[in-house]
């Protein structure tokens, strides 16, 4: 299945986000080898140059590294992966809080709604 991508945002950004997600969610684990560019591009059904650019950006961020002859790997630095995970989480939370604010809930109210939902689920 081709990856699901939004039509109104740069493809490159979305590829970076998707692979980042695959790394923090553990689909690719620390030290794993990732498939070659062409294979990833075919799977995602995107342009190989765009995929290449996304992988280069992930290398720049330190999440991936290249070993000259054997391919591209996920960093072994689990601390760094956790840091990215936390950054992504806080981004999601900010968006969520912003949406809740528009609905008229402040942060405290939002937290108590979450607690209530959690309690209901546990029952």
């Amino acid at each position: 299945m081709a990856w699901t991508l939004d039509a109104d945002r740069p493809i490159y950004t979305q590829l970076v986000e998707k692979i980042q997600m695959d790394i923090v969610s553990g689909f690719y684990k620390a030290g794993d080898k990732i498939p070659p560019v062409r294979e990833l591009a075919t799977e995602a059904a995107v342009n190989p140059n765009t995929m290449q650019k996304a992988l280069a950006e992930l290398e720049r961020l330190g999440l991936l590294y290249t070993q000259r002859t054997s391919g591209r790997f996920v960093t072994e630095d689990e601390e760094m992966i956790n840091k990215v995970k936390e950054e992504m989480a806080s981004k999601h939370i900010k968006v969520f809080l912003e949406n809740m604010k528009q609905l008229g809930y402040d942060v405290e109210e939002t937290i108590s709604v979450i607690k209530e939902l959690k309690r209901e689920e546990e029952e």
């Binding site: 039509a7 109104d8 945002r9 740069p10 493809i11 490159y12 342009n47 765009t50």
Partner: peptide, 15 residues
Amino acid sequence: SVDEIRMKEGKSVDQ
């Protein structure tokens, strides 16, 4: 480039 268009126009090439 496709991404240039999406970045500048905030819409797909198709749109």
